[in-house]
């Protein structure tokens, strides 16, 4: 057997193995509600977020009274030019509103995927000054918090165990607060992809490259199956199109999306971006966790048709267009 035939044989075996693995049924917990609720509220500028956030939370009334709430924003890297992170003004407004609705405690947790110096990111992004102004809300760096072991059950990844930060696992209510963005590997990065930030860098490194090697879609869904997201508040005031999540351009979508179902939230965000959520692989895979189908979503606030914009997509993702 010569080198070429050995190489061909190896590749064939690897491809066959991958095909078999991808075709195996995976085991997802069923969390889909009969109907899900989503509100799309118009908001053109961050100076006006306080009232919009309060209206959105009153509209969908998440059960936060007396609860320990963890907000998981999307805080990746700071750039003067690109809207990479969930805006600090929106995060601060959510903290204030949750306390007004009777939350026992609100903490903000994030483990930036590229940056080890979270203090620097907090200072430069402006989140630290917002939190100082709000008071009574601390930030926990999920990259360095104590962790507990989770045994994944979906079979989507080869992980025997995943270590996740205790503040996430012990919260009564987890609110995912993504920035609405395109993503050069996953198509979109919304409330489910936002969960990459809970994986602790002190165990898996910066970036959390182990997740990429398990398949980005598989990892997103594995994490979503392990960590229930109870509510979503997505920052679409200034979203990102094109080469997201870091190098895309500003897209002024002019709205905030609220939902009690992360899959419904992400599906709605996709529709607002001119993307068919059924064509986004990780959303399709995560459908047992929520409602992808618009007929099962009670839509409040603005209509999608009125707010929808065509987001620029990288050539490899044009097939996602709705």
């Amino acid at each position: 057997m010569n080198r070429r035939s050995l190489l061909s044989g190896g590749l064939l075996a690897a491809t066959a193995g991958l095909a078999v693995h991808q075709s195996l049924p995976y085991r997802m917990p069923i969390r889909r509600q009969r109907r899900s609720r989503v509100a799309v509220l118009r908001c053109d500028r961050y100076e006006a977020v306080a009232d919009v956030v309060m209206n959105g939370l009153r509209l969908l009334a998440p059960a936060v009274h007396g609860k320990r709430v963890l907000l998981k924003p999307n805080l990746v890297e700071y750039s003067v030019a690109a809207p990479i992170n969930t805006n600090p003004a929106l995060i601060a407004a959510v903290v204030e509103s949750l306390y007004r609705l009777g939350a026992a405690s609100v903490i903000i947790g994030e483990g930036p995927g590229h940056v080890r110096d979270t203090d620097l990111l907090l200072f430069e992004s402006g989140l630290q000054s917002q939190l100082d102004a709000v008071g009574r809300c601390r930030f926990v760096d999920l990259n360095f918090e104590p962790v507990s072991r989770i045994v994944p059950h979906t079979g989507l990844t080869h992980f025997d165990e995943i270590w996740l930060p205790n503040p996430v696992l012990s919260a009564d209510v987890v609110i995912s607060m993504p920035k609405i963005k395109t993503h050069h590997w996953a198509g979109v990065t919304l409330s489910l992809k936002n969960l990459f930030g809970v994986v602790p860098g002190s165990i898996y490194g910066w970036p959390k490259n182990l997740l990429h090697w398990q398949g980005i879609d598989n990892s997103i869904v594995e994490l979503a199956a392990a960590i229930p997201i109870h509510f979503v508040i997505a920052d679409g005031i200034e979203a990102m199109e094109g080469n997201g999540p870091l190098n895309g351009s500003v897209k002024r979508l002019g709205c905030i999306v609220f939902s009690d179902d992360p899959v419904a939230a992400d599906a709605t965000c996709c529709r607002l971006m001119g993307i068919d959520p059924n064509r986004v692989r990780h959303l399709q895979m995560a459908s047992p966790l929520g409602n992808l189908d618009s007929s099962r979503i009670d839509q409040r606030g603005e209509s999608i048709e009125r707010m929808k914009q065509q987001f620029a997509l990288l050539p490899e993702f044009v097939h996602l267009r709705g």
Binding site: H184, I203, W206, N209
Partner: peptide, 24 residues
Amino acid sequence: KQVQFDPMKSGWPWVEGTVSWVAP
């Protein structure tokens, strides 16, 4: 080819099963 680097030059990964990164 989306990420440009010379794969002939490797260092250490954070954990087993990934590519090399600067800090480790």
